[in-house]
Design a protein around this nucleic acid. Structure first.
Length: 298
DNA sequence: ATCGGAAGCG
DNA sequence: CGCTTCCGAT
């Protein structure tokens, strides 16, 4: 399936409503194609073993529900945060790259980023001023946060990533902090596979205290030896994400020693340690538990 | 540079 | 709804 078009791949993975995954547009590979296979490879070891295919490593998958529903106008259009993750997943050579902190990214070339975004959306007049306005709208949604003082630097709130309303989730079941998330929580106790499905605080601890490259398995193609018993874990593949120091570790087992100790302080980080505004300020009343839209917890 | 209101679009 | 466009304020 080397030469399959994006749409063919999409069809390939079309399963049930719940299992369907969609490829986030990579139909326009950049010229400066980058990053060695080693760098790009997803070697997520979360119970499913390494992810050997370069194909996967270069492809960002998003679950179907992360896109606009089919019935909406401009159906299934890429959202800005998809696009950002896509670029970030393509190595450090693009207009944006991961920053110093977990989830933080820096826009190295704002106008170029805007140009690419404009191309993707068919908005030739796009510029950084407009794009940044879109980013600012993410603040209230708690998808992004500005890293104050650092120019062109924003931060993803990964602790809120994906899940609410995941198809199969009991409708009306508001998942706030206690819900299991599809990320591996490692390494700490039990080794790398002890994961996928810890508690909220545990997740937050993992996500916010981590200072080494981490693989987010929130996008997985289906055919994996995951026990299907879990409503969520069976559906999420791996996406390589923040590599703060531009380096990548080929295997989780080779993670450097001196992983940040899990301190009590870290453990008790608020679910939104970075979120300093109150719920009201964040506009929390705007949505009910049932909406999805972004794929982020709200 | 960054923010956020306001209006508009699909 | 998720931006896009425009813009005055900081």
């Amino acid at each position: 399936m080397m030469m399959l078009s994006a749409s063919v791949k999409r069809d390939f993975f079309r399963g049930t409503n719940t299992e369907r995954l969609i490829i986030s547009a990579l139909e326009k590979p950049e010229k400066h194609q980058p990053a060695t296979a080693t760098q790009m490879q997803c070697n997520c070891s979360c119970s499913i073993g390494p992810f050997p295919s370069p194909y996967w490593s270069r492809t960002v998958l998003f679950p179907d529900w992360a896109y606009k529903p089919a019935w909406s106008p401009g159906s299934r259009q890429v959202q800005l945060w998809h696009f950002l993750l896509e670029l970030l997943g393509r190595g450090e050579s693009g207009p944006i790259g991961w920053g110093g902190e977990w989830g933080e990214f820096v826009i190295r070339d704002p106008e170029r980023l805007a140009r690419l975004w404009g191309e993707r959306k068919g908005k030739p007049q796009m510029n950084y001023d407009k794009l940044s306005r879109a980013l600012r709208y993410y603040y209230n949604k708690r998808i992004l946060h500005k890293t104050k003082g650092k120019r062109f630097t924003y931060k993803f709130n990964f602790s809120k990533l994906v899940l609410v309303n995941y198809p199969g989730h009991p409708p009306g079941h508001q998942v706030v902090q206690s819900a299991p998330l599809p990320f591996p929580v490692f390494p700490s106790d039990g080794g790398v596979t002890r994961v996928c499905g810890g508690g909220g605080p545990l997740i937050d601890r993992a996500l916010q205290s981590v200072t080494y490259p981490l693989l987010l398995p929130y996008l997985l193609p289906k055919p994996f030896p995951f026990p299907h018993s879990h409503p969520v874990l069976g559906h999420f593949p791996c996406l390589s994400v923040p590599s703060p120091h531009g380096s990548s570790y080929p295997n989780l087992k080779e993670l450097p020693a001196g992983i940040p100790p899990t301190t009590t302080a870290a453990l008790h980080l608020t679910p939104n340690a970075w979120a300093t505004k109150s719920g009201k300020e964040w506009g929390l009343n705007r949505r009910g538990a049932g909406t999805v839209g972004t794929g982020y917890l709200e």
